[in-house]
Design a protein around this nucleic acid. Structure first.
Ligand code: MN
Ligand code: MN
Ligand code: MN
Ligand code: MN
Lengths: 221, 221
DNA sequence: AATATAATTTAGGTATACCTAAATATAAAT
DNA sequence: ATTTATATTTAGGTATACCTAAATTATATT
């Protein structure tokens, strides 16, 4: 059995790897909220367990078995988030924090029961894909909402789940995954965007728009 | 926040206190599956935190705040056991093991949601009482099934939850909490009992009967 | 190419929670 | 009342996972 810490490291390494590409000691330290020196120590351990390959001063990469475990933890996390929302009505801004703890104590048996209860879902409440039992994950290629130009429509794909208060804010505005939107206008100098959701215009700061990913971007007819 | 270890100690201390009365270093070590020397170390820590009172060589007792926390952990444990059974169909011989891990990661918010979902239940799948949110617990006074004499009827109150294979066995025979039984005969020399459950005679070894508690013992008319 | 800056690692240290072996206190037996 | 057996504690040690401060390496700047 792997420790909770190791599981969290693998999960975060996977996350950084699939967004930024390169996983550095500092980026890990930042996301995990611990000192870089501590990360170095843990990377040695992960390397000894053949979960990552680590060239000194050159960052880490998950091995095949490291990736497998990372995806298992991510599957746990996302299934739990969706389960908490669907079965117990936990609002979407609170499920992440709970899942962060539960992911480490979920047995395979309960995982399967939750998966079945939910009808084998493919994405969590924030739109992130849920890896399958055998470790397959569908990584859509998304664009950042902040970069979409006026006169385009799109579909919200994912919303970052790390800031609960931002999620509450976005929820009130209606920025849920799978929602259709049209970018009406974009102010210059990193200014706000006017976005049409269900025929209502919402104003969204560009900073916040950085945390929203969209797909199916098309010019409006 | 208290560690998982501390929570488990308090829970087990409560358990021994309410069955055997006196809580010794060795009894704790036995139930927790660790060395007595390790228990001594932890008891010092618990004592420093004012969760127990500890006179050297004389065992421990929970303080008021220690009792409160023990009951909180027990509430978590038992609510989770019942929830897993009711919401996810986990069989009663497997819920204990899961609850042993989940009890430490359950937030008060989710606890309340589960409690509400279950309709504010008062006992878990093995018949143990669930403490209320404010730390009240109804300890019925039960008799041990092994000690009931022939010609008496009784109601099954609790079944020990620690041995999964025994639970499976007892489940097949129909020994669930709240089941009415009649003791038909009892063989001497610690021999087996003939027990009538729903008009069928079941034969139960006396050793196993030690793990079943009953209430409402009355002479059959 | 030399130097300054930033990232990373090493060294040494802390807290938690366990362990075994040895010492000591309590309880039981003679 | 001694002796013996058992329970408990002390002493010393391990593994995990973090920390800060200092040293080292890599990268960027001039
Ligand atoms: Mn999440
Ligand atoms: Mn986590
Ligand atoms: Mn239990
Ligand atoms: Mn536990």
């Amino acid at each position: 059995m792997l420790s909770q810490s190791i599981e969290d490291y693998l999960k975060v390494i996977y996350d950084i790897q699939s967004t930024d590409g390169k996983v550095t000691t500092t980026s890990l330290a930042g996301k995990l909220g611990i000192a870089p020196a501590s990360v170095t120590g843990m990377l040695k351990k992960l390397s000894a367990k053949k979960l990552v390959t680590h060239k000194k001063y050159q960052g880490v990469q998950l091995t095949e078995s490291g990736t497998k475990i990372a995806l298992e933890v991510i599957r746990h996390h996302r299934l739990i988030e969706l389960y908490l929302k669907e079965a117990l009505g936990v609002p979407w801004d609170r499920v992440h924090e709970e899942a962060e703890k539960w992911e480490h104590v979920l047995s395979e048996d309960i995982e399967d029961r939750i998966d079945k209860f939910l009808g084998h879902p493919t994405s969590d409440p924030h739109g992130s894909p849920i890896p399958s039992r055998d470790g397959k994950i569908i990584e859509r290629d998304c664009s950042c909402l902040a970069d979409i130009e006026p006169g385009h429509k799109a579909v919200i794909a994912e919303v970052s789940d790390h800031d609960a208060s931002m999620l509450r804010y976005l929820g009130e505005l209606g920025f849920y995954p799978e929602t259709n939107i049209v970018i009406d206008s974009v102010e210059p100098f990193n200014g706000p965007m006017k976005i049409n959701i269900k025929n209502k215009i919402k104003i969204l700061g560009r900073e916040v728009a950085r945390y929203i990913a969209v797909t199916d971007v098309k010019k409006v007819a």
